[in-house]
Amino acid sequence: MIELTRVTKRYGDKAVVDDLSLTVARGAFFVLVGPSGSGKSTTLKMINRLVGIDAGAIAVDGRNVRDMPAEALRRGMGYVIQSIGLFPHWTVADNIATVPRLLRWPEARVRARVAELIALLQLDAAEVARKYPHELSGGQQQRIGVARALAADPGIVLMDEPFGALDPITRDALQGEIARIHAATEKTIVFVTHDMDEALRLGTEIAILDQGRLVQCGSPADILRSPANDFVRTFVGGADFGLRLLGVTRVRDRLRPNGALAGPPVSPDASLKEALSLMIASRRDALPVRDGAGRSLGAVHLADLARA
């Protein structure tokens, strides 16, 4: 658990983070989102003390980060940045092994862990491990960046716009990857982005920042259904607001228990956005809902999608 209590950071006279209090629950995928200059990146860097705290306190699992040696604190957390920052003079395997070696793991354990991570990130072990970073594509490099952050199996991973520089297709693949890893490992992830769609897709909890202050914090659905003010409404809104709302609502929340329908079935855990897409593609205004075992649960109707 990470707790920020009335944290402030000033550069000169300007407070870039202003009296910010947040709680990141263990196992959360916590997304800090806001426009540029909102202080989200600074907030993230205060957690691993890359940026000093001017006022207030940050506690990780109940311990004030200021009471821990900065290096030890950082070795206990993963850290991924947009520009990746792989060491160009080391092979991929050596890059991944950085923190385990800093922690003086036995070499056999280091090697086993590197192999495990290369498999987890779905990279070809034999091919990739001995390569140097400049021989890899940007997407592969960031996969290595993520693997490197996970190497010492930290309970917390900090990610600073990790996918911001990737092309849309690679970004989509890596978003899926990190969501899968989060679900499988139950790590606490603190994730900074300025992209609302990325925040809504990945976050279990979203904090919206503006000019160093917390504007709203809650689940994606909370934020879309009841934006705290006009800023949030503008930020999450726009032409895509309705579609985003459909994206955070599950089919099971709009289930009608009526009889069997014809048409392609949809899972109760799918989002309404996916259901809508399927309706349009199959030219129907209702679809049967079936669970993973194929049992019929009812139907979802076009008319219900617009219901609040």
Partner: peptide, 9 residues
């Protein structure tokens, strides 16, 4: 690279 190195401790 330097930021990543610092961030890893």
């Amino acid at each position: 690279v330097v930021e990543a190195a610092r961030g890893m401790g």
